[in-house]
Design a protein around this nucleic acid. Structure first.
Lengths: 211, 211
DNA sequence: TATTTTTAATTGATCGATCAATCAATAAAA
DNA sequence: TTTTATTGATTGATCGATCAATTAAAAATA
């Protein structure tokens, strides 16, 4: 029963359905039929609009990334100091809808897919780089560049690791604890750097250069 | 050409082949035929000895876990102080063969599979718990228990995260840097705890309790 | 020792199921 | 009448799994 102008509606529905299906299935082995069912259309229509399953998956990741960026922009708008911006970047990654089990499961599936699909890998690299550079730009205003780079790597790894463990649902570290853990890491590292720069501070600060 | 006593030989060959195949394929979508080819036998033989693909995969994960534990035991034997034991635990996880791209890719695939297979999930939970408790037992001798738990969570997450990023092969953090990053995290956290316990130390130590 | 029987190892052939993808057909809006 | 939206039916390929058949070693029997 063709109503004109359905294309954008269907595309969005299919992308959303893919995220949901991949999310609660936990892998890309979901069938096009299942995705289509979630979206309330026939499998053939999914192919009509996206050409292939791989393309649909790619669009889904793109959409996740767009969402993440939009959230980041919004969060950063309210932050004024570098330290606040840092916290904003951390917080965004643990926002409820990003940290929801299905979303995490979907990310995991995408990471695995990245091993086979170069396009998927490229997209995830974009995400990884963006996270690093968001952290880095704030950190560089809080400590020397070389320390900043190291702290950014550590924080990014910790964030990704907390995701991974969230995906396993074994020892569920809550959203708040995840944020606290990451914040605490950043705080301690910054303190260590500051301590090393001010050796008169009474006590030896922990070293960070172990390279 | 039946030679008696082949079973253990074939089982090992098939398990090794599975790890390799899953590793460079990057996912569990490898076919039994491919695994069997890696092992130099027919697909039918793989079914003969393991019954199903799922069972073969499970045995493969078990084997990975065994290896990891053996490495850990060996590394711990040479450590005497709590701090040395802590370093040993960290180091083991970044050993060359554990941190090799194919191994990391295999781990990733298993994590993804854990979303669907309860048995796989259970095994990975065992790994996660073991990592946590190894870290924890050393940490508890270096700081109060509540701080220890937090630091263990953070370190475990960071280790897993470094694996994840290694899997992406985007901004490759080297083995040495990965170890250094994790060590630095532990050092700084312990220093922060110590600093908070000795408030006369001239400068306020960074807070860790953000819960 | 010689012969037969049992057991272990191994595979080729094949079945059945699943699934992505295609396509021709239909229905209604423009 | 052309275009857009939509689907049911179908195809072709892939893959896990099964099974009967084969080979040779080991064990039992004569």
């Amino acid at each position: 029963m063709p109503k004109v102008g359905m294309e954008p509606v269907r595309r969005k529905a299919l992308v959303d359905a893919t995220l949901r299906a991949v999310g609660d299935h936990g892998s890309l082995t979901v069938t096009m039929s299942e995705i289509a069912r979630h979206a309330g259309v026939s499998p053939a229509l999914a192919h009509h609009y996206f050409g292939s399953k791989e393309q649909l998956v790619i669009e889904t990741i793109r959409s996740l990334l767009r969402q993440l960026r939009a959230d980041a922009v919004a969060a950063l708008r309210e932050a004024t100091t570098p330290r606040e911006r840092l916290s904003a970047v951390i917080r965004v990654n643990f926002q409820a809808h990003q940290f929801a089990p299905e979303t995490v499961a979907a990310w995991l599936a995408f990471y695995s897919e990245a091993q086979r699909s170069e396009s998927v890998r490229r997209l995830l690299v974009v995400y990884a780089r963006r996270l690093n550079s968001s952290l880095l730009s704030s950190l560089k205003q809080l400590c020397p560049a070389e320390n900043a780079a190291q702290i950014a790597d550590g924080a990014a790894a910790m964030i990704d690791g907390l995701y991974l463990r969230q995906g396993l649902r074994s020892a569920p570290v809550s959203i708040e604890s995840s944020i606290a853990l990451t914040e605490s890491y950043v705080d301690a590292q910054l303190a260590a750097v500051a301590g090393a720069a001010l050796p008169d501070a009474g006590r030896r600060a922990p070293v960070t250069e172990k390279r």
